[in-house]
Every structure is written in C-alpha cells, then in structure tokens.
Design a protein around this nucleic acid. Structure first.
Length: 272
DNA sequence: AGGCAGGCTTTTA
DNA sequence: TAAAAGCCTGCC
C-alpha cells in the first residue's frame, strides 16, 4: 500500500537511533522491520508518502500502532524553545524524524539487558545470534529468510552452549533468569503495560540484571511510557556538559523520553 | 539511607 | 588498550 504520512518519519534515523536493533536497510534504501510475528518492508517515496509491503488492514492492525502514528511529533518538537534550550532545540532539529516505536515489551527487555556496557554493533550481533539460535526461521515479504525474536519459552529452553554462542558474556545469566521469571509468571509482562509508571519501574528493577537504565529503556521503548528518561554514559555527559545548572525535567513532562532520544542520537553523532 | 569501588564477558575502535 | 545505551556485591 501507499501510505500518506504527514508527521516526522525518518526511517534511517530511527534505524540508527539505538532504540531498535533489528531494522535492516536493504539495497534500494527500504527497511525491513520485524515486529512480533510480522515483518514489514517500508520505503520512502516522497516527503510524505511511503510504500509499505502490507495492505490497509495490516497497517491498521499492526504497523500504525508500532509506528506510534497517532502521536504528533512535529508539535512535540515545536514545544522546545530555541532561546531557553538551544542544545535541545538543535538536537531535535537535527534528529527530526525520530519516533518512539511501540516495540514488543519482551523483546525490549531482553534487548536492553543485552545492551548493557556494550556498543551498538555488538548489541546487534548478539541479538541476531539469539534470533538465529532460538527464533523461528521465516520469510519476509520479499521472500528472504530472517529469524523472529524468540519468546520466553524458547529462550528458557536454550542450551548453555547455544546461549554462550550468542556472545553475551556475563549477561547470559541475566537472560536466563529473566526468561525463567517470565515463564513462571513471577514477572507478568502483559500486566506491566497496564500498571502505573512507578509500579512498572519497580517490577523491572526487581529482575536480576536490570537496573535503572535498562528499566527506563524498557519503559520507554517497550511499554511506551514516553516520559521515561534513560540515563546512559552519553546522556550523563550531556547533563554534565550542556546542563551544568540542571536539566528542566519537570518542564518537559510528559515528553522527556522523546527529548532524551533526540539528545542521545544527536550527541552520539557529534562525537563519532 | 545512599554512594562508591571493583569485577564482570566480549567486542569495537 | 580503553571504552562500550550497566549491574551486582560488598563496604562505608
């Protein structure tokens, strides 16, 4: 189908933003986007039209929500004052096109446990290995093979050898225990989306291997609490270097997560 | 209570 | 060799 889309949407920027790790750019500039049991091929045609491999029904049912299409990112960017906050203003201008995807919470949880203390290429590699070893082999809309993200049972059933083959290092124990916690319902993933922000945070950090940073990422990218504000090494530097007298977190509620993402992507680019 | 040091696997640059 | 979208334990 051809999709008319008049708000911010830059596929390349989203793919590089560090919020998702399995988007793949194809030769023609389109992107392969796996999500749950589905896979979308999406390509930009003009400023506000895109070619999608799904039909209208599939878009309404799956991808509209995944792309957070009902949120007006342009107006959220428009709330930033150039005068009061030139750094954030510059970041948002440069990173215009980023959206916060509504990813699968389980995938976000495992992905961000894997992410700790590693750079993005290494994260992508481990996740790809995990999918190859425990996911299901599927075909994308172009008929090419890819692997789905394995569910909790599939991860729990992995042999130590297969898990070690994902090059997770000390994190393999975290992954194993988290999969077990979800399987035996000591963590109810589905309930997380329905509880308060505070409650969701508390439940997440109670997991072995999940601290404040990873929990915040799961909240922002998996549970779509767009006010969650993950502080990693880059954001820490931003707060120290650009906001020595304090960051106006309260003024930016409830959009702190979106603004964090602009700053994160922008600052990384500046320091590459 | 809350902060700090050291260790942890592996990859990347 | 240092750093990487950190967390855990132990210590104060």
């Amino acid at each position: 189908m051809i999709l008319e889309f008049n708000d911010d949407l830059n596929l390349k920027k989203i793919a590089d933003s560090g919020q998702c790790f399995r988007w793949e750019e194809l030769e023609d500039g389109s992107f392969r986007v796996p999500h749950k049991d589905s896979c979308l091929i999406i390509r930009k045609l003009t400023d506000d039209t895109y070619e999608l491999s799904c039909d209208e029904g599939g878009y309404q049912r799956i991808w509209k929500d995944y792309l957070d299409a009902d949120t007006d990112y342009r107006s959220i960017r428009g709330r930033i004052s150039k005068k009061k906050d030139p750094f954030l203003y510059a970041a948002a201008a440069d990173q215009q096109g980023i959206r916060i995807l509504k990813q699968d919470p389980w995938e976000a949880l495992i992905s961000f446990i894997i992410s700790q203390n590693r750079n993005i290429p290494a994260i992508k590699r481990s996740i790809e290995l995990l999918c190859e070893k425990a996911g299901k082999k599927r075909k994308d809309p172009l008929g090419r093979a890819y692997y789905s993200f394995p569910g909790p049972e599939a991860v729990r059933a992995m042999s130590d050898e297969d898990l070690a083959g994902c090059r997770l290092g000390y994190r393999d124990e975290y992954i194993k225990r988290t999969a077990a916690a979800v399987c035996d319902s000591s963590l109810d993933i589905k309930a997380l989306t329905e509880c308060s922000e505070e409650e969701a945070f508390d439940r997440l950090i109670s997991l072995h291997g999940v601290g404040k940073k990873v929990a915040s990422c799961v909240m922002l990218f998996g549970l779509h609490f767009i006010n969650a504000f993950p502080v990693d090494v880059w954001v820490k530097r931003i707060l120290e270097n650009e906001y020595p007298s304090g960051y106006p977190m309260d003024d930016y509620a409830p959009y702190n997560g979106i603004y964090q993402q602009y700053m994160f992507a922008y600052y990384r680019k500046l320091n590459e």
